[in-house]
Amino acid sequence: MGFTFEWQVMLETFPLLLSGVKLTIIITLGGLFFGFIIGAVTGLMKLSRSRFLRKLAGIYVESIRGTPLIVQVMFLYFGVPMATGLRITPVAAGIIAIAVNSGAYIAEIVRGAVQSVDVGQTEAGRSIGLTRIQTMRYIIWPQAFRRMIPPLGNQFIISLKDTSLLVVIGVAELTRVGQEIIAVNFRAFEVWLTVGIVYLMMTLSIAKVLQMTEERLEKRSAR
């Protein structure tokens, strides 16, 4: 039983994937939007003077980083509704899962970037009478944010790929759409190859935008 590669299948598959691409992007962007908010809050909690807040943030970050995303997704989609009686749609569960998961990694990005700003900046801010919050807002955060851009770009790529795990809860994102096409035409080789190429196109585009942003920032700081 010989295998013949069929270009035609790839060309046919491509347009069929677009709805999946769209959902993948929506879930990634939505997840990262909330993930950044969660990450910023937890990252700052980790730097807080309050031991309680630091511990709380630590427990969250360690729990997420120490468990597989797929378990988190299943827990959120199948486990939580069982305990609470609240049903959520697969897409909402996907966005929440990506947000909660990326939030833990973004917390570390935020913490690292804030800590990397020279302590002299904080001292200069405090010495002219700014409060701790004002110093963070006007002096530390803007400098830290620039340093967050490269690792945030990385997290963007990671989270985008992570959305493919949502296949387990039936979200019609790119991977799921690929599966459904194969169920009809049985051309696993061509379809998965196409799906892979589409992911690669997305991740390479993000990497490119990231690189351009970094170059622009570098030019500005080398003024």
Partner: peptide
């Protein structure tokens, strides 16, 4: 303390200007 600090401001060896 913030208001008091502003009454005796500091000039540092390393300048510590805000670069942004």
């Amino acid at each position: 303390i913030n208001q008091v600090r502003a009454e005796a401001t500091m000039v540092f060896q390393g300048f510590n200007l805000f670069p942004h």
